[in-house]
Amino acid sequence: MTAAIMERGLVIFDCDGVLVDSEPISIRCTAAALNGFGYPIDEDGVFDRFLGASTASMVKTVEESLGRTLAPEALDDLRREILAAFDVELTAIPGVSEAVNALDRPFCVASSSIPERIRHSLRLTGLLPLFEPAIFSATMVVHGKPAPDLFLLAAKRLGAAPSECVVIEDSIHGAAAGQAAGMVVLGFTGGSHIARDPDRRERHAWRLKRAGAALVFDSMADLPELVRQVTR
């Protein structure tokens, strides 16, 4: 099995904004919570500063700015609020199930979210059976994205050489992490938090390329062929 993976490579998916259209929900809840903590920020600010970053990384930035620690129970409340909103609003990215099933090589998830949230999101959208048990969380490494640690862990656990891996990311932090890991990065701009605003999509596509994305795409229908193109 390991030899087969190394020969065919590995596709590593981020979760939020790539597999599930969760970012508008998370951004809305996070902006409200951070303002409640005394850290003034709007939804665009959360998008620009924290999209794709681990919770630990975001909390570190906020605590350094405020000069105090955030109450653990407040962060627990934010997690519960996001998950409750997911139960009502969360959907899969259009076409993602078909795209994943059409891949000609192994695949996994490597997300900055905690394991419970990743599995909850995939379960709600019917994607969990596609990926279980190949699910990796930033809680499994010391340094989350934009450090390469999480992607390197996924490759190591699944027996793939980093140079044979393709990362699918919607965030600047994730694209930078994939490049730092020595992997090919495909930037995705089809999530509603990006695609609903043409100017934002164009701007974000440019930022993804600057962060390390070899190509940027906005439709999951194009993914299988793009993976084949960048791994020939």
Rank of each mutant, 00 (worst) to 15 (best):
R123Y: 01
W206S: 13
R49N: 13
G144E: 08
S112A: 14
P146H: 03
V18T: 06
A33C: 13
V109T: 06
P24L: 14
L215G: 04
M58E: 10
L226V: 05
A138R: 06
T30A: 14
T61D: 13
L226A: 08
H193V: 03
I41R: 02
G17I: 00
C29F: 11
R201V: 08
F86H: 14
V216D: 05
A99T: 00
T189R: 05
R79K: 10
P162V: 11
T2C: 06
D42I: 12
T55A: 15
A84D: 15
K156G: 15
T61K: 13
F188S: 07
L130P: 05
D14G: 14
F13R: 00
F86S: 11
Q229F: 03
T125N: 12
F136Y: 12
R28T: 13
E169V: 13
P224A: 01
V11E: 08
G191A: 09
S171R: 03
D76H: 09
D48T: 12
S171C: 04
V141I: 13
V216W: 00
H143Y: 08
R28I: 02
I135C: 07
R68Q: 10
S219H: 05
V46F: 13
A161L: 11
E202Q: 13
E169F: 12
T231M: 10
V59C: 03
R8V: 02
R200T: 02
C29D: 14
R105L: 06
E169Q: 06
R8D: 01
F107I: 02
L215I: 06
S163D: 08
Y39E: 10
M220C: 02
A102M: 05
G178Q: 08
A56S: 15
L130K: 08
L51N: 10
A154I: 10
F37V: 14
E43Y: 12
E164N: 10
I168H: 03
I93M: 15
A74H: 08
V62Q: 02
A177P: 04
L150S: 11
D222P: 03
A138P: 03
A4V: 09
E81D: 11
A211L: 12
P72Q: 10
P106D: 07
M1V: 09
P162T: 07
R79I: 13
K145G: 12
R207W: 06
L90T: 00
H204L: 14
A3G: 06
